[in-house]
Amino acid sequence: AQENTIQWKVLGQPLATGKIQSQKEQPFFENFAERTGLPIEINYQPVDTTGIKDTEQLRIMKAGLFDLVSLRMSPNSRDAPVLTGLDLVGLNPDYATARTVTDAYLPVLDEQLQESFDVKLLGAWPFGPQILFCDAPVSSFSDIEGLKVRVYDQNLAKFVESVGATAVPMSFPEVHQSLSLGAVDCAITGPSSANSAGWPEVTTHQLTLGMGSAMNGYAISLKAWNQLDSNQQETLQTAFNELNDEIWEYSESLYNDALNCNSGQQPCETGTEYDLVNVEPTEADLAQVREALLNISLPTWADICDQANPDCSANWEANVGPVIGLE
C-alpha cells in the first residue's frame, strides 16, 4: 500500500469549539489510516489556525486546496442556502427530531452539493440544541416578551422578535459582560458553551427548548472521492458513519451533562456546577415553535433557497415534511 499513499488535507472545526473537536474529530483524523485501513495520510488543520473564515469553506474546497472539510452549515449557507434546510429555527427542538430530520434530508443536501460545489457529504452532526439563558424568571418561552435577547444569527432574531422580544446581535465573548450589566436579559447558546463561559454566574434560568442545533457535516471533494475505488469508498463512508454516530451520541451526553451542571444536578462531569432553575418547555412552547417554523423560518428561507435552485423548498417539503408530520 505504501507505493501509492494518498495525501489529503483536511480543514477541521475551530480549536475553540471544545470537546467534540478535541475528543472526536481531531483524534479521528490523526489516526485515520489505522481507523479506516485506507492508505491515506491526513494533514489536519483546525480552521481558526489558518486564518480562513468559516464562511469561506465551500469556496476554499472549490479552489481545490482541501480535500475534506468539517463543514459549518450556518456560515456556509451564505453560498449554499440549501444547508439551512437542515436546521431551520424551530425545526429541531431536541436530539431525536434532529436525527430524524438529518437522516431524511441528507440525501437531498448531498445531491445539491455534488451538483453545485463538486462536494460530497459524508454525514452531519449537531453541536446540540441552542437554548435560552435568562437573568429573569421565565417559566415558558412566551415570557421573553419585552426582554432583550442576544441572538447569533438573523433567523433567530426574527424568531425571538415574533414573540415580542428585542433581538440583540452580539458576538459570543461579549455576552457574559452584557448579561451581568443588564445590557441583555437573555442569551441563546448551547449549554456547555454557556457553562464554560460562565453564563450561569450572571443568569438564573435555563429554558431547554432547542431553537437550533448548530449543524455540521463532513464534505469531501469529488476529486478526492474519485481517487478511491468503490470498495475504498464504501470503507470510507462506513468510517464516517461510525464517526458521525459517535459524535451524535457524544454530543447528546455532553448536552445532558452540561444541563445537569448548570442546574446543580448529578451527574456533572464536564463542567462547573451552578444552580440555575431548569425550565422544561411546555406544550404551548412547542406549539409556538412549530408555528414560528411554519410561518417565519420556512417561508423566509424558501424564498432565498428557491432563488438559488427552484426545486429547493419543494425538495425539502417532500423529504423533511413527512418525518415531522407536515401534510
Binding site: S77, R78, D79, D153, Q154, Q307
Partner: peptide, 15 residues
C-alpha cells in the same frame, strides 16, 4: 465569479 455562480446572499436581516 463565485458569488455570481452561487448567487451568494449575506446571512443578515437585509439578506
Amino acid at each position: 465569479g463565485d458569488t455570481l455562480a452561487y448567487r451568494s446572499v449575506a446571512q443578515t436581516s437585509w439578506a
